[in-house]
Amino acid sequence: MTGSLDFATSEEQQAVAGAVARFCETHAVERAARDTEGDFPLELWRALAAMGIFAPAAPGYEDAGGALELQAICATLGEYAFPGPVAATYAALQVLTGVTREQVMAGDALVSLSGAGDTLLPYGTVAGVFLIAGDDGIHHAEPASAPAAVRTLGGEAWGRAALTASGVLKNSARGLVIGDIARSAYLTGIAARLVRETSEHAATRKQFGKTLGEFQAVSHPLADCAIAVAAANTLAHAAAAAFDARAADDLSPDPIAAARRLAAGAINSARRGALATAYACHQVYGGIGMTLEGPAFHLTRRIRQVASEAPARSREQSILLADAGLGN
């Protein structure tokens, strides 16, 4: 009998994560991640897509790997605070078909995923595909007019317009689950980097004759961040494994249902953990963390931004509460 539990990162996951990390190192992603004024870096996005990173878990691309590879990729993109609609793109590729799907896969069309009734559209001025995450699934949508440019507090180029939605797209359930996995992995990736770098800072910077990290008032909050990141990461990993139907049947006989509840837990956990990490790490950095060019701001603003994106918390809450058996 073989071992039945495995939480280690697989070779496939390590390989794709390594490739994405190398890309980020060689393509000045840091500069793009710090930019709060320029246009969306479309060329960078296309170059990323050209690596084929959006194929994993997409229907018809089984050879490209599954949700576990996707999770590893998103976590790495998070580590670099890679700009753009990462989770929305993965969600979209579950539900789109035909030419649109190929354009999105190639990075030629950008996806804007918003909540039902929202008029503030992520990347609205540059997006080619508009989708709405509603209670009943993912809808295709068209803006009533060309979205007007809006700059978010996080410095991202979004747009404002009313949307007209059409019917629910096929494979919506998978799309929302993949979106949750991708977004929680991405948030966990940023938060993990933030904890690592802040800890390095605390281990070297001296005050009152010792390093910051020797003060329990610094080390214990950082430990809490690391714990929150580990919890979210474990749940995202579990959700991805369930999605890939490699989990045995004690979790649920239906892999998508099993992945759905774990992914709802993962996004709840990741959002909570990443936001708490952002606050705690800013507190450790002190003044230097407040500056635009400092070590933390480009990471924490991205956490805030991604944590606020659609789908809203109410979606995961209803999944978690139904799973826990709490009546309406």
Binding site: L5, F7, A230, A231, A232, T234, L235, H237, A238, R261, L262, A264, G265, N268, S269, R272, R313, E316, Q317, L320, L321, D323, A324, L326
Partner: peptide, 19 residues
């Protein structure tokens, strides 16, 4: 409901961390 959803997610956290 908001409080219970967070608790439900945290129970999942410890179930998976336990494993």
């Amino acid at each position: 409901r908001e409080r219970m959803a967070d608790l439900a997610a945290r129970v999942l956290e410890t179930e998976m961390l336990g494993r």
